[in-house]
Design a protein around this nucleic acid. Structure first.
Lengths: 342, 342
DNA sequence: ATTAGCACTCAGGCATCGAGAGTGCTAACA
DNA sequence: TGTTAGCACTCTCGATGCCTGAGTGCTAAT
């Protein structure tokens, strides 16, 4: 059997219909649509039957309409991806409303982005904070807090901030801490995590810096590998009839609460614009009836983060992709300059 | 009609039964329990009928059993609160497992706490970061980041850290920033938010500090009023049959996504150990079938946060209260000393 | 005051039935 | 040879009715 132009058109029409109604699509319904162009229901039935044999359609039971298979969605999105991802300016406006110009912390920006995406798409969205591909420390600062406590602040090139409270033996004055800060900043500027480890060893031999401080720096550096993740619109998942079974919904929500699983869902192939996982491709039983669209956003050449949307397999791929595309670019720009724009 | 000892015992037995089964309780079921002590079902029926008249019981329909009314729960919890809140040591152990000794940021501690509570209780839990009753700034630090960007770090007495990226006109060296940091820290130490505002005005006249920095400090101070909120176990809500209607579940989950509503639910009367809101007492239509137990935890005398649990009205109050009690104390201690314990 | 007994009510499970939507197949048609 | 009309068949879904079990309220007896 061969896929011809007409079969393809019919398949796409079925997918479109099913995405918006969540109801099996019948031949008569389809024949009435003008997109197909005056084919009788009988003809369509024949074509559908072929498409089913080819693995693109499924029948929940005899005498129901057909629903698209995962393979069909695959074909569908493959086609979408080859097109343009222009976001209608109206939607763009709606997205922009969510940006808080005054956001002064990366986390705020990330959270806003997640909420914006989920508000506009009505799906659940996930956004990770940017992660440097190669770490560049811009500044290490020790802040005096109390007799025995010191706050360690680490700022990276992309403006990512990690702070960590440290306990140290013996009191240090603000000025001493400042000096150490300058020393560490100078020594560690622009190093990779592995290099930092080496350098710290070296420093501990050459200079007298508190052991706890060096430990702290190392830990903070390592934490840069675990970027913050924000989830928006968790409740959206419950909008869709495929999750009217609470147990299914619970399982999906539970995934969203587990950092590791969430990361697993999100991992995007960085060289590709979009990674789309449909149904079982998500690799987790809990999400076998979900699709995940994720994409890598870039800040300069040095660091990347991920944004994604999770929803039922019959997701409105065509709407979500431009939203992510737009948002990814917006995030890249917004985060390029650390801090708020004037 | 008067509430006598027997009526009360029967009412409590009904509540206990309903809490664990979520099914209307009938007279025969009840008469078989030994807690009631060999009363015939007929007698119990009479008593139940009285209790219904008094407003403590409700009948979903004739010939169903009775379910407790909000008033009944009120009575029930009032009684609970007067007792002791000892947590069985076994549960305490389960809670403790969740504490990460290495947590070095207030937010981590808070998040762990929320997850611990929801894991142990199987309800959704909410924990706010501590909020100073009177703000005490311990240190203001400006960290050089780039030519035009400076990171402002604010540390309060209780080790709460706020950081904020600022853009400033004109470059400042690390040393200059350090000096300004010292100046600001000295001037602002131990002031209330109102006083900070005054003082900043004064400083801007006396010393030459960048306008943007002063603005930033003010904003950071004001943000201390909006403590971080962490939610744990959102998916737990879907365990309970009262939310097998997805729309109801969605509404509750949506509340958990709205900071303001969440705050409204949580506001606890600080002088009381526990605040319990049952059904409509939550003051929101979305949560009219929920109960919220919240409690204020204290860190020293100066600052307080809130921990709470949200679940169906037939919540296992007797189990949740000791958990919160324990957790509140644990948090108070854990957060007393800024930073990790040695 | 308590209880046994009885009539009554109602939700929920189960089978039945008809309507509606949809299919597959065949035969006629262009 | 591809398309279509027609028809028999299948299956779901909602409505209907029946039955059972759980539960109640009331009354009369203890």
């Amino acid at each position: 059997m061969q896929m011809d132009e007409r079969k393809y058109r019919i398949l796409m029409a079925i997918i479109d219909d099913y995405i918006s109604t969540a109801m099996p699509v019948g031949s008569r319904t389809l024949s009435k649509k003008q997109t197909i162009g005056g084919l009788s229901s009988a003809t369509i039935r024949n074509e559908m039957s072929d498409l089913e044999e080819m693995g693109f359609l499924e029948q929940p039971h005899t005498s129901a309409g057909r629903i698209p298979s995962a393979t069909a969605y695959r074909l569908y999105v493959e086609n979408l991806l080859s097109g343009s991802h222009r976001l209608p300016s109206e939607e763009a406006k709606r997205l922009r409303v969510h940006f808080d110009r005054r956001a002064r912390q990366v986390e705020d920006v990330i959270l806003n982005a997640a909420q914006a995406i989920s508000d506009v798409t009505r799906y659940t969205s996930v956004v990770t904070a940017p992660q440097a591909q190669r770490l560049h420390i811009r500044r290490v600062q020790l802040v005096p807090v109390s007799e025995s406590a010191v706050l360690l602040v680490l700022v990276t090139d992309i403006g990512l901030v990690k702070d960590m409270m440290l306990h140290i033996d013996g009191q240090l004055t603000a000025d001493q801490l400042h000096e150490i800060s300058n020393l560490l900043s100078e020594q560690l500027a622009g190093l990779t995590p592995a290099a930092v480890r080496e350098k710290l060893k070296e420093i501990s031999e050459t200079f007298s810096v508190h052991r706890q401080v060096l430990h702290g720096v190392l830990e903070a550096v390592e934490q840069t590998d675990r970027p913050e993740i924000m989830v928006g619109g968790r409740s959206n998942i419950l909008h869709y009839p495929e999750y009217s079974d609470t147990e299914k919904a619970r399982a999906v929500l539970a995934v969203l609460e587990t950092r590791d699983k969430l990361m697993q869902l999100l991992t995007a192939t960085p060289q590709m614009a979009f990674t789309i996982r449909i149904g079982n491709e998500t690799g987790m039983p809990e999400t076998s009836e979900c699709s995940v669209i994720s994409m890598t956003y870039r800040i300069g050449d040095e660091s990347t983060g991920t944004i994604g949307v999770i929803g039922p397999t019959r997701m409105q791929y065509a709407r979500v992709i431009p939203v992510l595309d737009y948002m990814g670019k917006a995030l890249g720009e917004l985060l390029r300059e650390p801090g708020p724009q004037p």
